[in-house]
């Protein structure tokens, strides 16, 4: 992680650079390492279906064993991916709950292949973002009990005084993927006080364990319960506002609670604020 902190965005990508900064500011992020863009260039140029070179594969596995976590999440970290102009939201694959050497290498290759898809290319072209370096983050998997997304500015009223948070049981993928109508709350940007809360219908949850990830229905009686307690909500809000202060611009933050407490999984500039 120390190396990632030193490394320029062009070689580790936006996500890894931001995780490194969070870590340096003592904000808990899951342990991670980065497969740098330079190392992956050859694989990307070979096109879909390519394999990691043996030296690179062993370097990746070395990093994996060094994390000390059997299960990891493999995510893209591209330059331009998380810029303030275009988020590339969901354009690259993330693979959760990966464990085992062979599976990890496959997952890295698959995340790379997602950078070559037509959709990604089209999105990049239409958003005017240059095709940049593409790195991969391997992050210890958090077995989250509840998770979600926080925007430090309300996306529909970015000039107002409030921020916005969404939450569901399980991992945050159900919120990010729009698979459910989640719980939501608004909070004051100054002071982080919760202003309003709604309970979403949250019919399903995405869960992850050592065997991988799955989508399961949430029992009806549980759907009506709030995902976050008041204290938890305030903790996430306070963390989000601190991250905005750290980066000096509005942030789009993915967060999760596991038995150990609150983790920040990623933070990036909030998009769509121009108008």
């Amino acid at each position: 992680m120390a190396e990632a902190l030193e490394a320029p965005v062009e070689s580790v990508g936006g996500k890894a650079a931001s995780l490194a900064r969070l870590h340096a500011a003592d904000i808990p992020v899951p342990p991670f390492f980065v497969v740098e863009a330079g190392a992956l260039r050859e694989l990307l140029e070979a096109g879909p279906g390519g394999h990691l070179r043996p030296e690179l594969a062993s370097a990746v596995l070395e990093g994996y064993h060094g994390l000390g976590h059997a299960a990891v999440a493999v995510r893209s970290s591209a330059a331009g991916e998380d810029s303030a102009a275009a988020s590339f939201a969901g354009q690259f694959a993330s693979i959760l709950g990966v464990s085992g050497d062979e599976n990890l290498l496959l997952a890295v290759e698959r995340v790379c292949a997602s950078a070559l898809s037509d959709d990604v290319e089209a999105y990049r072209r239409s958003s005017g973002v240059e095709a940049g370096a593409f790195a991969v983050v391997v992050q210890a998997q958090i077995f989250s009990e509840k998770a979600g997304v926080l925007f430090t500015r309300h996306p529909l009223e970015p000039d107002g005084h409030e921020g916005y948070l969404e939450a569901n049981f399980g991992t945050g993928e159900s919120v990010v993927g729009g698979m459910v109508t989640p719980d939501s709350l608004t909070f004051t940007r100054a002071g982080g006080k919760v202003v309003s809360r709604t309970i979403g219908s949250k019919r399903v949850a995405t869960v992850v364990d050592e065997s991988g990830s799955a989508v399961i229905p949430t029992p009806p009686e549980r759907r009506e319960l709030p995902v976050l307690s008041d204290e938890e909500a305030e903790a996430v809000v306070a963390r989000g506002l601190r991250i905005e202060e750290l980066f000096s611009c509005p942030q789009d933050v993915e967060w999760a609670f596991d038995s150990a407490g609150l983790w920040i999984l990623q933070a990036r500039p909030q998009t769509g604020l121009a108008s």
Binding site: A86, S87, A89, A122, Y123, S126, L150, G177, G178, D252
Partner: peptide
């Protein structure tokens, strides 16, 4: 194709919140 989203008049879904990827893409 994602360009087709931009040319759509509007998007309507069964599920999804304000911070979902779909919402972000639609706003962008």
């Amino acid at each position: 194709p994602s360009v087709a989203i931009e040319k759509a008049a509007a998007v309507v879904t069964d599920e999804g919140g304000l911070l979902s990827h779909a919402a972000i893409v639609c706003r962008e």
